[in-house]
């Protein structure tokens, strides 16, 4: 079995230089001959015939001490190529968290004014809600603007099947609204900014595919003294309603 794993290891790391190879799991009972135990020590002992095969009995971790004495490899940093690979893997892992779990980004613009400042807002975005997963009417979402290549932050006013006003009630920037409504098609949502007069949103480019939603805004974080969670303001009515 040990020779099996050793051959596996040789197969899996064919290009590794022997002077950088060290046993992956340092164990005192490795039965194969480590390449380090066969390397000559820095000061050869007089009885050199038996020093090669087995370490001296008074130090059980003979081969690791020999290696440190020889100074052949950095202790655990390994080959420089491996450091680059480790960095790459770490960056990819961080990117995964950033893209699929949570991220933070600055936001600017007047379209969400009572909720967010025009400048200097930093938003915490939960990417678990990407593609509109578990997004409810009233949530604030970050989305890819369908008509250019920027990212916007708006509030969801309608989900598939809901009926929404196509334009601003009581006249917005473009004059009085016609008051006509549409049903949000399946797979889409209707998003509108909080500041109706200074927001370019679904009233302009129509319903937005849920696939363009990047995530749900869950908090504003900077400055940290003004940290606050962004909660959905819609509440279910407690008592029975009249209508």
């Amino acid at each position: 079995m040990p020779s099996l794993t050793y051959n596996f290891r040789r197969l899996l790391r064919p290009g590794a230089l022997p002077r950088f190879v060290k046993p992956a799991i340092p164990s005192p009972k490795l039965s194969y001959s480590s390449p380090f135990s066969s390397s000559p020590p820095s000061s050869p002992p007089p009885s050199s015939t038996k020093a090669d095969s087995d370490p001296s009995p008074n130090e059980p971790n003979g081969d690791t001490k020999d290696r440190h004495k020889a100074g052949s490899a950095p202790s655990w940093l390994g080959h420089p190529f491996r450091v680059i690979l480790a960095t790459l893997k770490f960056v990819a892992f961080t990117h995964l968290l950033w893209e699929y779990v949570i991220s933070m980004a600055p936001a600017s613009g007047p379209s969400m004014l009572p909720t967010f400042e025009v400048l200097g807002e930093w938003l915490l975005v939960s990417k678990l809600h990407r593609f509109g997963r578990d997004v409810a009417v009233g949530d604030v979402v970050a989305y890819n603007i369908p008509i250019n290549d920027e990212v916007g932050v708006k509030r969801v006013l309608g989900l598939p099947g809901d009926y929404v006003l196509m334009d601003t009630p009581d006249g917005g920037v473009g004059g009085a609204g016609s008051g006509s409504m549409i049903q949000v098609p399946k797979g889409h949502c209707w998003i509108v900014g909080d500041n109706l007069v200074a927001s370019r949103d679904s009233r302009y480019f129509g319903p937005v595919p849920l696939a363009l939603i990047r995530g749900k805004v869950i908090a504003t974080v900077r400055p940290f003294s003004e940290f606050r969670w962004i909660v959905n303001p819609l509440r279910k009515a407690d008592g029975p309603s009249d209508d």
Binding site: M1, A24, I25, S27, S75, G78, R82
Partner: peptide, 24 residues
């Protein structure tokens, strides 16, 4: 690989039989 040193030191304390070494 980067965690090899930590993994090795953590796993070295456990059993050294054939089976445990294989699973390690």
């Amino acid at each position: 690989m980067a965690a090899r040193w930590a993994w090795g030191s953590a796993a070295a304390g456990r059993g050294t039989g054939l089976r445990s070494r294989f699973f390690r």
